[in-house]
Each structure stands twice: as structure tokens, then as C-alpha cells.
């Protein structure tokens, strides 16, 4: 998947959690990724984050610390 598409998807999810009350938006966003993103997608996600995470919403970047790093395939 292209980094642009991945960024768009992650940001779309962030858009929802940003509107939710409470201070745990990053945790909840991360939980969503852990629940629904297959390890390959999370690996691509980390590759992009590790490369600076261009275009990612700040909430996504904050959430990255709570996202489970997939085991090396």
C-alpha cells in the first residue's frame, strides 16, 4: 500500500477519535489499529512513522507508541 493511502486511512481514523471526549484519544486510536490492522499494515505503518511520518496527523504519531509492533514475518 502506498504511504499516501496508509496516511489517509490513519488520519481518517484520527479524525473520528479527535472528536471524542476524553484524553485517551491516542490509546483508543492505537487500539483500533491493533484490532483491525493486519501485521503487514502495521509494519508499513511503522516504516512510515520511523521514516518521519510525513503527513500523519499528530494524534496518529502520538498513538504510534501504543500500537503493537508486529513480529518480524
Amino acid at each position: 500500500m502506498s504511504p499516501e493511502k496508509l496516511t489517509m486511512m490513519a488520519n481518517q481514523i484520527a479524525t473520528f477519535f479527535k472528536t471524542q471526549p476524553g484524553a485517551d484519544g491516542a490509546e483508543r486510536l492505537a487500539a483500533h489499529l491493533n484490532d483491525f490492522w493486519e501485521p503487514r499494515m502495521r509494519a508499513q505503518f511503522f516504516a512510515h512513522v520511523d521514516a518521519g511520518g510525513a503527513g500523519l496527523d499528530p494524534l496518529v504519531l502520538e498513538a504510534a507508541q501504543f500500537v503493537r509492533r508486529p513480529a518480524e514475518a
Binding site: M1, K5, D35, F36, W37, E38, P39, R40, M41, P70
Partner: peptide, 18 residues
């Protein structure tokens, strides 16, 4: 225990070659 690929993700992964 890990979630699998959804249809659009399968197609993305196919294009990626995995």
C-alpha cells in the same frame, strides 16, 4: 491472534506482492 486482511487490504497486499 492477529487480525487478518480485509478485502481492500488483500488487494493492496497483492499489488505489493505479499
Amino acid at each position: 491472534p492477529e487480525p487478518g486482511l480485509r478485502i481492500p487490504n488483500m488487494l493492496d497486499a497483492a499489488v505489493d506482492g505479499t
